[in-house]
Amino acid sequence: MLIFVLRRLALSVAIVAIAVVLLNAMLHLVPGDPTVMILGPRATPELIERTREAMGLDRPFYIQTLTFFGNLLRGDMGVDVFTGRSVASIVFSQLPYTLTLIAASIVWSAALGIVIGCYSAFRRGSWIDLSAGVLSVSTISVPSFVMALYGLLIFAVGLRWFPAVGAGTGFWGQAHYLVLPAFAIGISWVGYIARVVRASMLEILGANHVRMARAFGLTERRIVFSYALKIAVLPAVTLIGTGVVHLFSAAVFAEVIFSRPGIGALIVNAVNERNYPIVLGCILVTTIVIVLATLVSDLVNAWLDPRIREAL
């Protein structure tokens, strides 16, 4: 188990390193010179040259990448071109907002999705099952930013139940501001998770071991909650683990639409300004979070299923 975690962490480092190299390469392919953005259109060629030198942009691509890695090992992610603040402090000040948003979206959508999925499986073919099926497919097919826009229009502008922009302060204040963005991101996941849980629950309820549990007179409640559910949520856990990527991209939209602080809002501005250090810092942190999320989902599955635990 420990060996598995260590091996996975080593693999995660390798994945992050590859991502950084690819990102460095891609950023240099994007048209637009950061020095021009910083200094403005009236900068003299000499000034531009000097700034390029100071930022290390005159050196070859591989030297720039290696320097980045070197600095990274010392915990230095570079400085913001405009403000001169350290990238690390900017990124880590924004990260909690995004993580809270993603976590809130996962928690509410998983809880509701599992309940709906199980209920649909127990009452297969009932009108609740059928309407849950139709609703799932419709919510899955609507992009999260459309949900966000309509959520904003109806609940914030129209009904004025929830605030439209910002992040709020204090626990309840933040929670209040979280509702609409978390709803927009999570709604399609309710459908996904409900579908996956329903399918696996149906399979398990027809399994031989459930038949055997019934032959021993165990109550349906016990069969479902202590015997079947643990197996039925396995695919949903994997789905969420790999889906954190999509949750991040949905968070970008939500943060822009709701003007929330966060990695998504940060990255969009940084890309528009060709603020390379910030972009790199954001992507780096995001990649680490995504890689860790898959690791966590594997560990949760291992905790639920002894067969997976042993395979580790």
């Binding site: 031989n208 549990a213 007179g217 015997y227 643990k230 197996i231 299923d305 002894p306």
Partner: peptide, 24 residues
Amino acid sequence: MRAVRGRRISMVFQDPMTALNPVV
């Protein structure tokens, strides 16, 4: 029927590989 099952009548199934719950 559930009161009878497992107490007065019990059953052994065909395939032992799938008859026991794998995660308990």
